[in-house]
Design a protein around this nucleic acid. Structure first.
Length: 293
DNA sequence: GGTAGACCTGGACGC
DNA sequence: GCGTCCAGGTCTACC
């Protein structure tokens, strides 16, 4: 049993991160008591362990059943710091949100951080799995990927980590279609895994990229299966909020918020959030919508 | 620059 | 049961 305490930039609260979007309900995440979370992670050494994350004053505590080397502790600290956005600074967003009743809850709850997977590789695949399908199918495809290709937890082999690029690169399109049920997304996932595995694509480097958002967006759009919606979603996970992930849900929300349920397009969605400038994506994401059904 | 039609799955619906 | 329809973004081909 090991415990690692990590400090967060204040203000911080774990619950809004866990509840920030659907990722907590995709394996290998799991929501635990009191809006804590667990995640099954494969370390760079290949070791698979379960990380449990709970809030403590000033940050979080990460616990595992395993004994860890200093290097493993460092790796876990880095990953969890990224996953929860512990260093992220939302003070400029809070200044804007404090002026807008529909965003007041953001300041009150210290929201803004969006739950991320340890790797951009995993988040790109998961984002591709959310496109053009229903949430239940996204969860099923993600679970299939993990159950079929993920490395097992030694104590509990039915639970597995998210597959590595090399493991996915070693499968084939027919298997991803027939067994994993990815449908037409199969070649997209396979190509991504092969490019990352062969180092043709330095995907993880985009996490620290200082490219302007439009350039970063172009990089993401160049990935097969990543279109405007997916790119905007991934940009948000990368801490860039100057684009809005517009999907069919966005049209419905904006329609009932400002147009009496009449059909709307992307222009209407953008029009209501442009005033938030570089924070417009987060303003959209955190908006306290009228429509609840 | 924009757009039409194809792509897949599984759940809902009609018989 | 069995067939048909539908929702959900992105791709490619073509303009």
């Amino acid at each position: 049993m090991m415990r690692i305490e990590l400090a967060a930039r204040p203000p911080f609260s774990l619950a809004p991160v866990v509840l920030s979007h659907g990722w907590i309900r995709l394996l290998p995440f799991n929501e635990e008591q009191d809006h804590g979370l667990s995640y099954i992670d494969q370390l760079s050494s290949g070791k698979v362990l379960e990380l449990k994350v709970d809030e403590i004053p000033g940050g979080v505590a990460v616990t595992t059943h395993d004994d860890l080397t200093p290097a493993e502790r460092g790796e876990i600290a880095g990953k969890v710091g990224w996953m929860l956005g512990l260093e992220q600074d939302f003070s400029a967003f809070y200044d804007l949100a404090a002026q807008e009743p529909k965003l007041a809850h953001v300041v009150a709850k210290a929201s803004g951080r969006l739950l991320r997977s340890p790797s951009l590789f995993e988040d790109v695949i998961k984002t591709i799995l959310t496109t053009n399908t229903l949430w239940a199918a996204t969860r099923r495809m993600c679970a299939n990927l993990i159950n079929q290709f993920g490395a097992p937890l030694p104590d509990d082999p039915l639970r597995r980590a998210f597959p590595s690029p090399s493991r996915l690169a070693a499968t084939d399109e027919a298997t991803l279609r027939a067994e994993t049920r990815l449908g037409y997304r199969a070649p997209y996932v396979l190509e991504l895994a092969q490019q990352v595995d062969s180092s043709k694509l330095a995907l993880e480097a985009l996490k620290e990229s200082d490219l302007p958002t439009p350039e970063l967006r172009k990089r993401l759009l160049s990935l097969k299966g990543v279109g405007p919606y997916a790119a905007a979603n991934l940009l948000m996970l990368l801490g860039r909020y100057d684009d809005i992930p517009i999907d069919s849900w966005a049209f419905k929300m904006v329609s009932y918020e400002w147009y009496n349920g009449q059909p709307v397009g992307p222009a209407e969605v953008k029009a209501h959030f442009d005033r938030f400038g570089e924070w417009k994506g987060l303003a959209y994401w955190m908006w306290d919508w009228n429509y609840t059904g």
